[in-house]
Deep mutational scan, measured.
Amino acid sequence: LSQDQINEYKECFSLYDKQQRGKIKATDLMVAMRCLGASPTPGEVQRHLQTHGIDGNGELDFSTFLTIMHMQIKQE
């Protein structure tokens, strides 16, 4: 990932990090990914979360979000 991409991801991540705690809700993951041009299915989002041990009510930090985005873009 280039620095530009990382900055773009950070900007989008921040939109969903409403309390500015450095985390977004798992329920916002799909929308955040789509905001960056990825098109994950609900099943793919579920798999990404399970891979990282996050349940549907959990939260993920930016580095986890980056990893998930990277995996998603590689497979699209």
Rank of each mutant, 00 (worst) to 15 (best):
L1K: 09
L1D: 12
L1N: 15
L1I: 14
L1H: 02
L1A: 07
S2Q: 07
Q3N: 08
Q3C: 05
Q3D: 10
D4W: 01
D4M: 10
D4Y: 07
D4G: 04
D4E: 06
Q5G: 04
Q5M: 14
Q5N: 11
I6M: 14
I6F: 09
I6R: 11
N7Q: 13
N7R: 12
E8S: 15
E8T: 11
E8F: 06
E8A: 13
E8I: 07
Y9W: 14
Y9N: 02
K10C: 08
K10W: 07
K10V: 08
E11I: 12
E11S: 12
E11Q: 14
E11K: 14
E11V: 08
C12Q: 09
C12G: 13
F13Y: 03
F13I: 01
S14K: 12
S14Y: 06
S14D: 09
S14N: 05
L15D: 11
Y16T: 02
Y16K: 03
D17V: 03
D17F: 01
K18G: 06
K18Q: 09
K18Y: 09
K18S: 10
Q19S: 09
Q19A: 08
Q19K: 13
Q19L: 07
Q19E: 09
Q20I: 05
Q20H: 10
Q20G: 12
Q20P: 01
Q20K: 09
R21V: 10
R21N: 14
R21M: 08
R21I: 12
G22Y: 02
K23G: 03
K23E: 06
K23T: 13
K23Q: 11
K23V: 12
K25S: 12
K25W: 09
K25C: 11
K25H: 14
K25V: 09
K25R: 09
A26T: 11
T27R: 12
D28W: 03
D28H: 08
D28P: 00
M30P: 14
M30N: 07
M30R: 12
M30T: 13
M30W: 08
M30A: 13
V31Y: 14
V31I: 10
V31D: 15
V31Q: 11
A32L: 11
A32M: 08
A32K: 00
M33I: 06
M33C: 05
M33K: 00
R34T: 12
R34V: 09
R34S: 13
R34F: 07
R34E: 14
C35V: 11
C35N: 11
C35I: 10
C35S: 13
L36H: 04
L36R: 04
G37Y: 04
G37I: 01
G37H: 11
G37F: 03
G37P: 02
A38Y: 14
A38Q: 11
S39M: 15
S39K: 15
S39W: 08
S39P: 13
S39Q: 05
S39H: 15
T41G: 15
T41R: 06
P42S: 15
G43K: 13
G43H: 15
G43T: 08
G43C: 07
G43V: 10
G43I: 04
E44M: 03
V45D: 10
Q46H: 08
L49Y: 07
L49V: 03
T51S: 02
H52S: 03
H52L: 03
G53D: 06
D55V: 01
G56A: 14
N57W: 15
N57D: 15
N57Q: 15
N57Y: 03
G58V: 04
G58H: 04
G58D: 08
G58K: 12
E59M: 02
E59C: 10
L60R: 00
L60M: 08
L60D: 00
L60Y: 01
L60T: 03
D61A: 15
D61Y: 15
F62V: 05
F62S: 04
F62I: 05
S63W: 13
S63C: 11
L66S: 09
L66Y: 01
I68C: 09
I68S: 02
M69R: 01
M69T: 11
M69S: 10
M71R: 03
M71I: 03
I73V: 03
E76N: 08
E76W: 08
E76Y: 10
E76T: 11
